[in-house]
Simulated scan of single mutants.
Amino acid sequence: MGSVDRGRLDGRRALVTGGSKGSGAAVAQRLRELGADVYVTARTMPEGYEHPDRFIAADTSTAEGTALVASSIAEAGGVDVLVHVVGGASTPSGGFAAITDEQWATELQLNFLGAVRLDRALLPSMVRSGHGVVLHFTSIQRQMPQYDASLAYAAAKAALRTYSKGLANELAPHGVRVNAISPGGIETEAYERFVDRIAEGNGLSREGAKQKILDSLGGVPLGRFARTEEIADLVGFLVSDQASAIVGAEYVIDGGTVPTT
């Protein structure tokens, strides 16, 4: 079978969490282009969504939301590819002392436990079938935690990485591959709005605001953040048969932000 065929996902069913916008939307689109039947879950279906029969409106940070997604996917016949994109930080600034128990719980549910619950619901069918691919989105903050307003997010993503590695070792003998992708900054609509706020608040041009953001990370050697389609490119490869020997890995896509030794 040729390499082009091994990159295709024809005949496979996929689920992308957080797939309504940003990287999640780009990933869902790419998997469809590769031939997969793609289901998407997010809290709210975007207006005019092109595939309403493949959208599951649910909050996967809750047990109820996870159960709704799991039952919908079970009715569809299970999935062959599961990509956990959903995540985010909502902690107020102020460092460790400002993070309440409730805020810790919120970050852990959204960025870690939601994936754990959904895996627990959907992966047994993969194990029974003897094949499947799971991809967890972690973050470079698990290696470079920003303490002011995203320490809980960073810690949750570190937990997700450790969990992913253990899960990969457990499931690989059953034909199920588990890997992680660790993005740095991504040029999403939310990022562009953030650039506008930084520019307005500091009297800078948009380019000046972008440079200020890059400098706050200690610099990004590539000179820019990753684009959503570049994130989707990596996901498409990792969930395809072209990556059939890659298990328990974490691929960093950050333009060189994380220093290596």
Rank of each mutant, 00 (worst) to 15 (best):
S71M: 05
D254T: 02
S125Y: 03
L9E: 06
G94P: 11
K157S: 03
P259M: 09
R227N: 13
P46K: 03
Q211H: 09
R6V: 07
D101E: 15
S90G: 14
E187F: 04
L217W: 10
Q211E: 13
Q146A: 13
L217M: 14
V4L: 15
D80M: 07
G132D: 00
P173Q: 12
E230I: 11
G185Q: 14
G35F: 12
T228M: 10
G35I: 08
D10K: 12
G48M: 08
E229N: 14
G184C: 12
S71L: 02
S61I: 03
F237R: 00
Q242R: 14
E75Y: 08
I56G: 06
S71T: 15
G94K: 08
G248D: 13
R43M: 05
E192W: 14
V116K: 04
G218R: 03
A159E: 07
D53P: 01
D101L: 10
A159W: 02
G11E: 08
E250R: 04
G18K: 01
A155V: 13
T162W: 02
K157G: 04
D80F: 05
I213Q: 12
L34T: 08
R117V: 09
F194A: 11
S23D: 12
G184F: 01
A98F: 06
D254W: 00
V195E: 06
V16I: 09
V239G: 03
R142M: 11
L234S: 11
Y163P: 12
A74P: 09
A121R: 13
V178R: 05
V69W: 02
G185I: 10
R177I: 11
G185E: 11
I73R: 02
G87F: 01
G114M: 05
A243N: 05
V116S: 08
K21I: 02
I140Q: 04
A25W: 01
K21S: 09
G48Q: 06
P52G: 02
Q103R: 15
G223F: 06
E200R: 15
A249G: 13
P221K: 06
E187G: 10
D241T: 08
S23C: 14
G175E: 12
E75T: 15
V81I: 15
R8Y: 08
A89M: 11
Q143Y: 13
L214A: 12
S125M: 08
R30S: 06
A97S: 15
G35E: 07
P145T: 03
E207L: 04
R177G: 06
K21L: 01
A42S: 15
K212W: 05
H84G: 05
R43E: 14
Y147L: 15
